[in-house]
Design a protein around this nucleic acid. Structure first.
Lengths: 263, 263
DNA sequence: ATAACACTTCGGTGAGCGCCGAATCGTCCG
DNA sequence: CGGACGATTCGGCGCTCACCGAAGTGTTAT
């Protein structure tokens, strides 16, 4: 709305896109946000170590991110806990990451390589499944006519029936309601996986029935034996997305951690 | 995927969120992107004047935005035409704008005040209707049970029937397909309006039946007399969103355009 | 051909900002 | 109460980058 001040100068409000983008335009802050995409709560110190900066630097970044509304914080004693502000934030961050160019990074240890491999295989994306497993889910459901590609993805009536058969109460029950399907561009594979209400329901269902289990303080998901059977039977998912890739030895493991931004 | 180089160093690829955000972290570049959200094609010179920078500066910004994949360009003779790379880009930009903080800007002329008022009233948002009209559309459809709020917005069966009655062929025809409804946070009112397939179809329908007309080289929409009748009859939209607010005189109009970033 | 025009290239300038270390504050533990 | 610890504040350093103007390139108009 347009307003007039006391001194008869007129002003208006515009969304400051540049200010928001500037928050994410720094590698350290971007890394912090991506770390928080696991939906969890981290302390300032953990994030400082994760991002490879001094605690004082992390403090400054967190101040900016919280003031900008991207992060929510909670203080307990001498600790500062932060997490993403909400699902909107998470969704927009994932969308951005899908649009972003790729960058080469060095793998510095065997542990990091294995961690990365596990992330590519299956991980949470705030409230749904991403990684090779998530992409395979979406693509197989497409092939089987449970989803159809039309301005994003859509649940078909066959898809609603399939969900109902699984025992997911949500979709296609009340005739006035239709299931909300959203897609999320997977930043590990550049293909789309399932999000929205159906994606979230599927994730919850898989967790509750122990098809998958989530490692604490991490985004990594593991498919259980029960899950392998279920995914195979219900969807015919191929084995390669159900079993983790075996770890490959690194030629040089455990190089010392270099100071920030060497390249 | 993880790769091993000839010298046995291992690397991997990560989406460079910071690099993408850096493209939008500059006020001039952000202004250019927002201008292009009208879905149109602009020349480099037009954008330079719009953003208030020298042509040489605009060139540099356009180079970056095109290289970053946000803009598509097309050269014809001595002109350089640019537009947003695609609907994905537009959607993500609108999402970001909805998340962004507000900033006070000065209104420097009567023309600018009127332009801004018109933008708030009704405008395009790439392929659908935004502004007060767009928000009223979504909210009235909600009240009437054509949409339901559930993980975003959903089209109800009543909504599909309503669209079919309008003559919009898309929704609810084939039983295997369901209409894709997306919401888009309106940056002028902080409320949601309708996007996705249904929003786009509604926009096209309104344009074809001359319910609304679009000003050339602008995002501004005007509701016609036919449109007023149609929106009133079909949805019972209140008059205040159907008639443009009368222009209010400014106390000091036509202040000279100040050099960039005075504040 | 010549001039006007749209855009581009390049050098130089100034401001903004991310970083760290040292000192400090407040909390928790022994 | 004293020491360890997590987080914060502040000063200072160095780099990046947005900006402009002047000169240059290629295209269109006269």
């Amino acid at each position: 709305m347009i307003r007039w001040d006391a001194d008869h100068e007129s002003t208006a409000e515009t969304p400051d896109l540049a200010a928001l983008a500037a928050l994410l335009a720094d590698r350290t802050r971007a890394a912090i946000c991506i770390a928080l995409l696991d939906g969890g709560t981290w302390t300032a110190g953990e994030l400082a170590e994760y991002a490879g900066v001094a605690p004082s630097t992390a403090t400054e970044h967190l101040n900016l991110l919280v003031a900008g509304g991207l992060l929510a914080e909670e203080r307990q004693g001498r600790r500062r806990y932060v997490r993403l502000a909400g699902p909107d934030t998470a969704e927009t961050l994932e969308n951005l990451a899908g649009l972003a160019p790729y960058r080469q990074v060095r793998i510095r240890s065997l542990a990091e390589a294995n961690h990365r491999r596990a992330l590519h295989h299956a991980r949470t994306c705030y409230d749904h499944i991403a990684g090779a497993l998530g992409v395979a889910l979406a693509e197989t459901m497409l092939e089987r006519g449970l989803l159809v590609r039309e301005y994003g993805l859509e649940l078909t009536t066959a898809g609603a029936a399939w969900l109902a058969d699984l025992g997911i109460p949500h979709a296609g029950q009340s005739p006035a309601h239709r299931a909300h399907v959203r897609t999320c561009l997977d930043w590990t594979s550049r293909r789309q996986h399932l999000s929205g209400a159906v994606g979230a329901a599927l994730y919850r269902h898989a967790l509750e029935h122990r098809w998958i289990i989530k490692a604490p303080a991490s985004r990594i998901l593991a498919v259980t034996e029960v899950g392998r059977a279920a995914f195979r039977e219900r969807l015919g998912l191929p084995d390669e997305v159900l079993t983790p890739t075996p770890a490959t030895p690194l030629s040089r493991d455990r190089t010392e951690v270099s100071p920030r931004r060497p390249g």
